[in-house]
Simulated scan of single mutants.
Amino acid sequence: MLQKFSASEPIYLGYELKYPGTNLSFNYWKSGYVLSREALRRYTVEAKKSDSKHCMKMQGFTEDLELGRCLMNVGVVTGDTRDELGHETFIPIVTSELFIKGYDYIPWLRNMSWHSTDLHTVPISRRAITFHVSYPPRIFDLYYFMYHVRIFGKPLRNSMELLS
């Protein structure tokens, strides 16, 4: 996915949300961010300035809104991180909540998502990059299912798989 973008482009990636009451976007903190080299350079240069009007901490703003506002003010844009099918690669909420409750039962997500969909759930890419994990031990479950579970009846490819 990163090959779609150049490190010299001032761009940052994540799950895009709309700034309330505007046509501007920012990336949601719970899905994670990826900043291009140029975006990071612009941010650090501006943030080092003691008189910076663009990257000052404003009362009542969350991290993602602050970062988005700062980056927007120094010419950094959000990038579309969906795959070729339009499915999300940065997952903004816990997957169990997404699958059980669905998109329709999370009104803030439906109302603020930059890329709206008619589906009842956020379409997740088969090449997802990040998942929001609210309960840290759950990451061990994901690790186990991804790397250790084998399909019943499917032979192992080589003897090294017996050791894993």
Rank of each mutant, 00 (worst) to 15 (best):
M1H: 11
L2G: 05
K4E: 10
S6T: 07
A7M: 01
E9I: 02
I11V: 15
G14N: 05
Y15A: 06
L17M: 12
K18L: 08
K18M: 07
Y19T: 02
Y19F: 13
P20T: 00
P20Y: 02
G21Y: 02
G21Q: 06
N23D: 15
S25L: 05
N27D: 07
W29C: 05
W29A: 12
K30R: 13
S31F: 04
S31M: 03
S31E: 00
S31Y: 04
S31N: 02
G32N: 02
Y33G: 00
Y33T: 00
V34Y: 09
L35S: 09
L35D: 05
S36Q: 04
A39V: 00
A39M: 01
L40H: 08
L40S: 13
Y43R: 01
Y43W: 10
Y43Q: 01
Y43F: 15
Y43C: 03
K49Q: 10
K49C: 03
K49S: 14
D51W: 14
S52Q: 07
S52L: 10
K53E: 10
C55Q: 09
M56P: 00
K57H: 07
F61L: 07
E63C: 03
D64N: 09
L65H: 11
E66Y: 07
E66H: 13
E66L: 04
E66N: 14
L67W: 00
C70N: 08
L71E: 09
M72S: 14
N73M: 07
G75W: 04
G75H: 01
V77H: 12
T78L: 09
G79H: 05
D80S: 06
D80I: 04
T81A: 14
T81L: 05
T81C: 13
D83T: 06
E84F: 08
E84W: 08
L85F: 11
G86K: 09
H87P: 10
E88A: 13
E88D: 14
T89W: 06
I91A: 07
V94F: 10
V94A: 14
V94E: 15
T95H: 07
T95R: 14
S96A: 15
E97R: 15
E97G: 14
F99N: 14
F99W: 14
I100D: 11
K101M: 02
G102Y: 13
D104M: 13
D104H: 12
D104Y: 04
P107I: 00
W108N: 12
L109W: 15
M112W: 07
W114G: 01
H115Y: 15
S116D: 13
D118Y: 10
H120I: 02
T121E: 11
T121W: 13
S125N: 07
R126Y: 09
A128D: 01
I129F: 09
T130N: 10
H132S: 13
V133L: 06
Y135E: 06
P137K: 06
F140Y: 06
F140Q: 08
Y143Q: 09
Y143S: 08
F145V: 01
F145G: 05
M146C: 11
M146I: 05
M146P: 04
Y147P: 03
H148C: 12
H148E: 11
V149I: 12
K154W: 11
K154R: 15
R157P: 08
N158Q: 08
N158L: 02
M160H: 08
M160Q: 11
L162E: 13
L163F: 12
S164I: 08
